[in-house]
Simulated assay, not measured.
Amino acid sequence: MATDGTTGRRVTIERVWDRTTEVLSGRSGVIASVAFLTLVLPPIVNGALVLLAPQPPAAQLLTFVVGIASAVLSIWGSLAILALATHPSTDRSSAYRQATARLLPTIGVSLEIGIIALLLMAPIVIALAATGFDFAAASDAANANTPQSMPSLAPGVAIFIVLYGLALVILAFWASARLMLVTAVVLNERLGLGAIRRAIALSRGLTWRLVGVLLLFAIVFGVATFAAQAVVGLVFRLILGGEQVATALFLAGIAGAFVSAALMALAYVFTAQLYVATREKPTAE
């Protein structure tokens, strides 16, 4: 069972949550300012590009470049929020410096994990390719929103994809729980790929409780974001009329960006406090 190294007490999700609320009550202003810059503005800019962008292919290139920049900015913002939530003495300038210093190692570790995830997904692509699945036709059908024209699959392949996909989902939640502290380790312990092993060690004894936290967060995140976008979108469609659907969707996206940013900032603060609680003396399950 994992223990809090500074007190010897068992690490519990309830205790970590209590610490999270304490940090938010004392540092909500500075955390909100970082979240607005790095988690709210990027999706708003992306939404504006979709609404105002020139004709393809220029629009596609511009959207791609902005998308990459937004992803990098979001990683940088997550590091800054983690720094603010980990050490009470850290101010915004110091958090920005720490985030900048550890940005490239964090991206490197994230790419490594992403490559592993892609390799795990490869059997599905191989199975489809081996049966002569028409990927181009499937892409065209998806873009045209006509699922009835999707290429058919052999029953055996379909069963394999469903079962393997289900196993991947379970594995993804388990791995996400064990790797929840990777970014905090990269930031605070100056590790690169070694952060993966260290994060797994820190989360030992907490795996299934963290899986529960992830499931709950995924549900709350999905419901809250969808509700915000749906309600705001409906209101602005009624106000602006049927001819301004794109504008209503853009404004709904802004509401969704604020809600998702608030929840992600909460998740980063929770992660920081989980790291603080487990970093000294993790023990075996």
Rank of each mutant, 00 (worst) to 15 (best):
residue 249 L to W: 03
residue 229 Q to T: 07
residue 205 G to H: 10
residue 215 L to S: 03
residue 198 R to Y: 08
residue 230 A to G: 02
residue 204 R to L: 08
residue 230 A to Q: 11
residue 249 L to G: 01
residue 240 L to E: 05
residue 249 L to V: 13
residue 222 G to V: 03
residue 208 W to M: 12
residue 255 A to L: 11
residue 236 F to E: 04
residue 209 R to M: 07
residue 201 A to I: 06
residue 250 F to Y: 13
residue 227 A to W: 05
residue 204 R to V: 02
residue 228 A to P: 07
residue 200 I to W: 13
residue 202 L to H: 04
residue 222 G to E: 01
residue 201 A to F: 02
residue 226 F to T: 14
residue 254 I to K: 05
residue 239 I to E: 08
residue 232 V to D: 01
residue 218 A to Q: 10
residue 241 G to A: 12
residue 215 L to D: 03
residue 243 E to V: 08
residue 209 R to Q: 12
residue 208 W to A: 07
residue 219 I to V: 14
residue 227 A to K: 07
residue 232 V to P: 01
residue 232 V to I: 15
residue 201 A to G: 14
residue 208 W to Q: 04
residue 211 V to P: 04
residue 251 L to Y: 09
residue 249 L to I: 13
residue 205 G to R: 12
residue 216 L to S: 10
residue 241 G to N: 11
residue 213 V to T: 09
residue 252 A to R: 04
residue 247 T to L: 15
residue 251 L to R: 07
residue 220 V to F: 00
residue 242 G to E: 12
residue 215 L to H: 07
residue 232 V to H: 00
residue 250 F to C: 09
residue 224 A to T: 01
residue 245 V to K: 14
residue 205 G to C: 10
residue 213 V to G: 00
residue 247 T to A: 14
residue 253 G to Q: 02
residue 217 F to S: 13
residue 204 R to N: 12
residue 231 V to C: 08
residue 197 R to H: 12
residue 199 A to E: 05
residue 232 V to A: 09
residue 199 A to K: 09
residue 225 T to N: 07
residue 233 G to Y: 00
residue 200 I to P: 01
residue 199 A to S: 15
residue 217 F to V: 02
residue 235 V to N: 03
residue 255 A to N: 11
residue 246 A to P: 01
residue 221 F to W: 06
residue 207 T to N: 08
residue 219 I to Q: 00
residue 209 R to W: 09
residue 199 A to Q: 09
residue 219 I to H: 01
residue 231 V to E: 09
residue 246 A to F: 09
residue 221 F to D: 00
residue 217 F to A: 11
residue 217 F to W: 15
residue 234 L to S: 15
residue 230 A to T: 10
residue 249 L to D: 13
residue 240 L to D: 07
residue 245 V to F: 12
residue 206 L to M: 13
residue 237 R to W: 00
residue 213 V to P: 00
residue 234 L to H: 10
residue 200 I to S: 08
residue 237 R to C: 04
residue 210 L to E: 00
residue 221 F to C: 02
residue 253 G to E: 04
residue 218 A to C: 06
residue 246 A to R: 15
residue 209 R to I: 00
residue 233 G to S: 11
residue 242 G to L: 09
residue 204 R to G: 07
residue 201 A to D: 15
residue 238 L to S: 15
residue 250 F to T: 04
residue 227 A to G: 08
residue 251 L to W: 08
residue 229 Q to L: 00
residue 217 F to L: 12
residue 253 G to L: 09
residue 225 T to H: 04
residue 206 L to T: 02
residue 226 F to I: 04
residue 206 L to K: 06
residue 220 V to M: 05
residue 253 G to I: 02
residue 254 I to V: 14
residue 206 L to Q: 03
residue 215 L to E: 04
residue 215 L to T: 03
residue 208 W to I: 06
residue 202 L to S: 03
